Amino acid sequence: MTVKLDENAAYRELGPDQVLDAVESLGFPTDGRLLALNSYENRVYQVGLDPGSPLVAKFYRPGRWSDAAILEEHAFTLELAEREIPVVAPLVFDGRSLHRHGVFRFALYPRRGGRNPELDDPEVLEQLGRFMGRIHALGEVEPFTHRPTLDLESFGTASAGYLLDSGHLPAEVRPSYAEVTSALLEAVRAAYGRAAPVRLIRLHGDAHPGNILWTDHGPHIVDFDDARMGPAIQDLWMFLSGDRAAMSLGLCDLLEGYTQFHDFDPRELHLVEALRSLRMLHYAAWLARRWDDPAFPRAFPWFNTHRYWEEHVQSLREQIEAVAAPPLVWD
């Protein structure tokens, strides 16, 4: 996807006037209230209306997704919403969910509130499992055609290669990073071999607790921006925490709900630490790739320090053993 320089420059300078003008271009009278929400890959704002409840406006980063990929994500979430699965889907106007205002691409969403889920509560985990099972029951029906796959090459090999070539790594850390990532990627490859054949379905892709808004009536699942093809366990493992025993208990609660709506292949449990490792590699490379965006140095001042890279290498080294360990137990 080709991106013009003026699109990137305009995106970095996106301000309140452009946001309000874009929302008003769809016929919504704004009241001037604007709240930037916690998002860095895209720019997301809560916009006050007069009259009416606030909306959420999401402005897409140039070059990240093609229009076709964005619309494919929208279609997936809209279909989930039609099945009364509590996802927050984009609003549709005149048959369109993706809109343009000048060089900007944006979508509007209803505002949904909520709190973080209490992941130490077995009933919460079981309910999360049920909703993820319902999402995956639709996700397996057909593949994405415009969105990528979460795999070792794109999240692991490409991420490590980018950092080794980018100049972000301190010279004295570079050899140890190269050594540890080579060994870790080999361990991840072996884990995929133990899980084979790995079935790929449409996923949320970034199902961490921050993307779950919990209310007294249950969760709202938000932000499908990272939706892609991948193994089902990707949408489950980030709800597990603590030591091995605690994670195994949480897994059983999750799968108690999940398997009411979708089968689960226990071989995918070999991928929990492998996917954690790929996420760690990808996250560091993502920060490096976005470092020329002024929002990133402000939000992540600890990144790119010598201490960060030393701790990152040590964390990756510990993952080699974790990936090779026996999988979690599901009774």
Rank of each mutant, 00 (worst) to 15 (best):
Lys4Gln: 15
Asp6Arg: 11
Asn8Ala: 14
Asn8Gly: 10
Ala9Cys: 09
Ala10Cys: 12
Pro16Met: 08
Val19Asp: 03
Ala22Trp: 09
Glu24Ala: 09
Leu34Trp: 02
Leu35Trp: 12
Leu35Cys: 07
Asn38Glu: 02
Tyr45Phe: 15
Ser53Gly: 05
Ser53Tyr: 01
Pro54Tyr: 07
Val56Ser: 02
Arg61Gly: 04
Glu73Ala: 07
His74Gln: 13
Phe76Pro: 06
Thr77Phe: 12
Glu79Cys: 14
Leu80Gly: 00
Leu80Tyr: 04
Glu84His: 12
Val87Trp: 02
Ala89Gln: 04
Ala89Lys: 01
Pro90Phe: 10
Arg96Ser: 13
Leu98Phe: 14
His99Leu: 05
Gly102Phe: 03
Phe104His: 10
Phe106Ile: 00
Phe106His: 00
Leu108Asn: 09
Glu118Cys: 07
Leu119Trp: 00
Gln127Cys: 10
Arg130Ser: 09
Met132Asn: 07
Met132Pro: 03
Arg134Val: 07
Ala137Leu: 14
Leu138Asp: 01
His146Tyr: 10
Glu153Ile: 13
Ser154Thr: 13
Phe155His: 15
Ser159Val: 02
Tyr162Cys: 09
Leu163Asp: 02
Asp165Arg: 15
Gly167Asp: 12
Val173Cys: 12
Arg174Gly: 02
Arg174Glu: 08
Arg174Pro: 02
Ser176Tyr: 06
Tyr177Phe: 15
Glu179Trp: 14
Glu179Val: 10
Thr181Ala: 05
Ser182Lys: 14
Arg189Glu: 14
Arg194Trp: 03
Pro197Ser: 03
Ile201Glu: 04
Arg202Thr: 02
Leu203Val: 05
Leu203Tyr: 03
Gly205Val: 06
Asp206Gly: 08
Pro209Gly: 06
Ile212Tyr: 00
Gly218Pro: 11
Met229Gln: 15
Gly230Cys: 03
Leu236Ala: 03
Phe239Ile: 10
Ser241Lys: 15
Gly242Asn: 03
Ser248Phe: 00
Leu255Glu: 00
Tyr258Met: 09
Gln260Met: 07
Phe261Glu: 01
Pro266Phe: 01
Glu268Asp: 09
Glu268Thr: 04
Leu271Phe: 06
Val272Trp: 04
Glu273Ala: 10
His282Gln: 12
Tyr283Arg: 14
Tyr283Lys: 14
Trp286Gln: 08
Arg289Phe: 05
Asp293Ile: 02
Ala295Gly: 06
Ala295Met: 08
Arg298Tyr: 13
Trp302Ser: 04
Trp302Arg: 14
Arg307Glu: 07
Trp309Ala: 05
Val313Arg: 00
Gln314Arg: 15
Glu318Ala: 11
Gln319Asp: 09
Ile320Phe: 02
Ala322Asp: 05
Pro327Thr: 00
